[in-house]
Amino acid sequence: MNKTLKISLIFFVLIFISSCQTSEIEQPEQTLGLFYPDYVSKPVYGFEKNKLTHDGIQLGRMLFYDPILSSDSTISCGSCHAQAHAFADHNMKLSIGVNNRMGLRNSPPIFNLAWHPNFMWDGGVNHIEIMPLAPLTNHLEMNESIVNILLKLNRSQTYKSKFLQVFKKDSIDDQMMYYALTQFMGSITSFESKYDHVKQGKVAFSSSENRGYTLFKTHCNSCHQEPLFTNFSFRNNGLDSVFKDLGRALITLNHSDEGLFKVPSLRNVALTYPYMHDGRFRTLEEVINHYTSGIKHSKTLDTSFFENPIQLNPN
């Protein structure tokens, strides 16, 4: 080969090697999208900065089930958010944290979180990414400090290599931990119910389901709004006339928010018993009985219970 040609080739090769460090040979992992049917609105959390990847979701799942995130390595997120119960607790009224400490409210299920504008029964947490901060550090729950969690994660070669793979950083920080947990929790969706299949024209409701759907649309849909089966508002649904738990008012400090709690989704509702913020109702029948004959009056009771009382047997 001609010497000049050789030099030219070398230069051409150099062009590619030198064409900026960012274009590493490494292929970035394909980012995933959140699947949802067309009758569902766009989620509020879109994974724009926190790119959803297969490895990221796997890492989040690993963290979710790892008890080292708690102070005495006994409790993981999965301890009180069980997949068999749509990621609500194992039918406990209130959840048990480290040292058998009893929590204050019923563990909510985990699905369709990317659509939630806020979190917790009182809406106190304003972003999906920092949602885990509450259970991780609450002394009644996992009772651990973020500093300690990061120490433990950074001591683990397994975690270090997995975080490096997903986030391309050597040292694990709390943002990476929240991002991974958000990838797992935010990608859990509920869009394969019978309701969804009916919406998609794949199957039809039975006649009794249809009667239930009609009743639902008359009496429940204003708060438990289709297709997510919640409009994420805060309501006093008449549980008490004197409030043991002030609910939303603890966050807003408004008297008009006393006794209001976030409307839960009715998706997977058969799996998530017991019901209400304190788990007081064991069965769905008890819930229906409450709405038909158990509403207690108070100054913040939702007006829909006056205007449109639930009458399941109008005859």
Binding site: M120, G124, V125, N126, H127, I130, L133, A134, L136, T137, N138, S145, I146, V147, L250, I251
Partner: peptide
């Protein structure tokens, strides 16, 4: 330790 866990901010 400068972020509230129960009332974001």
């Amino acid at each position: 330790g400068m972020f509230w866990n129960w009332n974001s901010g």
